[in-house]
Design a protein around this nucleic acid. Structure first.
Lengths: 246, 246
DNA sequence: GCACTTCAAATGCCAGACAATTAGAAATCG
DNA sequence: CGATTTCTAATTGTCTGGCATTTGAAGTGC
């Protein structure tokens, strides 16, 4: 692991990159302890604060964890799906909000990915996943639910559907796509009529999943996508015609 | 933005979280300049190195960028898809290598997601995407190609297919799934026979995309998935029977 | 008006020190 | 001898203070 003091890049960034590469390449294995900060500062011939900045960069990506005390230090972290979820969601959310991605594009991607999960979920979902879906549908039927709560329940419903596929890689990839849409969905006000239609479509999906009918699940998802797109279109059109709503 | 000095968590982690939340919530907008390190250290009542560690954490996630000089400072970064790709790929790669995800599971997820892109790609791909696919197929037919180069070309082929869908959200999500599989694929040695079969299936895919035939594209992808799974199975079986290969 | 110089602000980096935490070793007591 | 307590060393977390480097902007001279 070498760094170039004459490089234009920050020393801490170079050090972080060197260690990250070693982790990705497998030179440093899970739970292995890195040298202490003092030793690293000697090895790289930089000061301890600089080493610390590098370690914090890695900690921000959950590549290492640190522990204080006599046997403490920095350890290569076993990156778990649970840890990776929030980062994935944060990144996806910001990508959507900062890049003027149209609602249509985001929605298309989300439902396309979700349809990809549908066959697996229909065949493999546990009774637990199905129960979660039914419970969320029931919650969505409650009158007096705020729009935010309705959206949150919507996300929970779809996550249960995706998790039902029993493939952690799919769940991880989908988490970003599904949750990142929530801020966009929260811009929509749902009338009682809208909610009834969505609940009906959710019920179609749950029924199809219960019957282990992969095709019907995909078809119901497509219907829900159309409904969502139509709803968003009308909301954005109304907002455009009288922009002084707020 | 407040932090709790008595909290067990690192001060720099708390500060980073506070600023990150402000960015995600929209309190800090793109290209806005954060207070200088000296000002932040006053606001949070911590020292400058602590503030710097917090800023490095955010920089590691591309949430901010820093600039030296008179008008320098830390700025809220417009997170672009280009910047997010490498992080997504690194994370996905580590998730697969550290969590004993079976080849089968990863492969299933990858092809499921790719099939989700197929209909869009068949209908929208530019001539450029198609040309890239043909070029990679041609490269894969060259004798004397190393296994690594063959895999790299394979990734390029599939990325062209995915990018052909013209949906940046899909491309972003798929980048992780496709590229993260490369280390797993690199464990496989491809015989000339294997390569010929894969090239033939790639040609089927390219032909279907050229005809704008979404169904045929999905079918060809499924055939390729089966071939890949079968190939991996035989390789792993052979390795298991005589484990002292290396 | 243009080129050059100077300046100030900000980040990047460093040295040294002290505080807090923690596991293990050592000492003490029953 | 065993259990408990205390001590100690190692390590990270934080602070103070300072210097180096970069860079835009203001000033200066021609």
């Amino acid at each position: 692991m070498k760094i170039d003091p004459a490089s234009p890049a920050d020393l801490s960034a170079q050090i972080a990159a060197a260690i990250r590469d070693a982790i990705v390449a497998g030179t440093l294995i899970v739970d292995e302890r890195l040298p202490s900060e003092a030793e690293l500062s000697e090895q790289f011939d930089v000061s301890r604060p600089t080493v610390r900045e590098a370690l914090k960069r890695l900690a921000a990506q959950s590549l290492i964890r640190t522990q204080r005390g006599a046997t403490g230090g920095a350890f290569v972290n076993r990156l778990s799906f649970e840890e990776a979820y929030p980062q994935q969601i944060t990144t996806s959310t910001l990508l959507l909000s900062m890049n003027a991605v149209s609602f249509e594009t985001a929605c298309e991607a989300r439902y396309a990915l979700e349809r990809a999960c549908a066959p697996f979920s229909a065949n493999r979902r546990s009774p637990d996943h199905l129960a979660t879906m039914r419970a969320e549908i029931h919650r969505q039927s409650q009158p007096g639910l705020t729009d935010e709560a309705f959206c949150a329940s919507d996300v929970a419903f779809h996550r249960a559907l995706v998790d039902g596929a029993g493939n952690p890689v799919l769940s991880y990839q989908l988490a970003g796509a599904v949750e990142a849409m929530q801020p966009l969905m929260n811009m929509i006000t749902f009338s009682a009529r809208d909610r009834a239609r969505i609940v009906a479509l959710h019920t179609d999906i749950a029924d199809a999943v219960e019957r282990k009918d992969a095709d019907a699940t995909a078809i119901a998802l497509t219907a829900l996508e159309l409904e969502t797109q139509k709803l968003a279109e009308s909301v954005f059109a109304a907002r455009a015609s009288k922009p002084a709503t707020k």
